[in-house]
Design a protein around this nucleic acid. Structure first.
Lengths: 123, 123
DNA sequence: CTTTTAATTCAATTATTATTGAATTATTGA
DNA sequence: TCAATAATTCAATAATAATTGAATTAAAAG
């Protein structure tokens, strides 16, 4: 389970228009992922600015990256999002699973957002 | 369903230590809620600062308030959190419900986070 | 080896958020 | 009415976060 500090880190990463949009598009782009430059073009954000946001998302554990030729490919990491959803559900429903339903089923489910860290993250 | 801009508003509201903690305690304090002053004491935050955060949470639709004597009682509003969870789930799993499971069941569920706006919000 | 392309890092700037202390509003009780 | 309590609003400051343009690193192609 996530501690409050980590939860704030992940929430902060998602609480920004460009970053939330990046994450959305990376989810849609699974499992191929997308190059940093392509994301910058699609969102019409300066490469340096996007790099900042991607680093931010990476720190929060929401994306992974790997070099492919001269491009760096980013991919959404579902597991962190799942952890966040679990945390918020606990927060939201505390000792009252009857209010929001029991999410533990899909938190425990097999095949649910497997960690896809098949390649080392780019440094 | 939440649009991206509103999602950012709600995420921003939660992406701050004091506010996340306030929300957590208000969830735990349901259904009585808690006075602003009591929250300020418990979190050891200056009243003016807490007021700022409570306004922030109120704007995002995460808390409601009502005056009771000289105190102002705040309560967690589950419905916004539920909406956020639904949005993030869509985001996270896109057209792939098999990845995170189908949350639509508890989004549609009866008795799930009824809107408890029994009193007018304090202006 | 030089040039081009892709991306990042860095330092500076700009913009946004959070905190503080003083002043203000609302309510209660002496 | 007056003093005390609870909370908010306001203006100023402090702290963080985001953007920019220039410089740098890495890989591919001529």
């Amino acid at each position: 389970m996530l501690d409050t500090k980590s939860a704030v880190t992940v929430l902060t990463a998602l609480a920004q228009g460009h970053r939330l949009e990046v994450f959305r598009r990376l989810v849609a782009a699974e499992p191929e992922g997308m190059a940093a430059g392509e994301l910058a073009r699609q969102l019409d954000v300066a490469p340096a600015a996007l790099s900042f946001h991607l680093t931010h998302l990476g720190h929060a554990g929401l994306v992974t990256s790997s070099r492919q030729g001269r491009s760096i490919i980013y991919r959404a990491d579902f597991s962190t999002m799942r952890t966040l959803l679990g945390y918020l559900t606990q927060d939201c429903c505390g000792g009252r699973p009857e209010i929001c339903g029991d999410l533990s089923v899909w938190n425990a489910a097999e095949g649910c957002a497997p960690t896809r860290r098949t390649s080392k993250d780019v440094k």
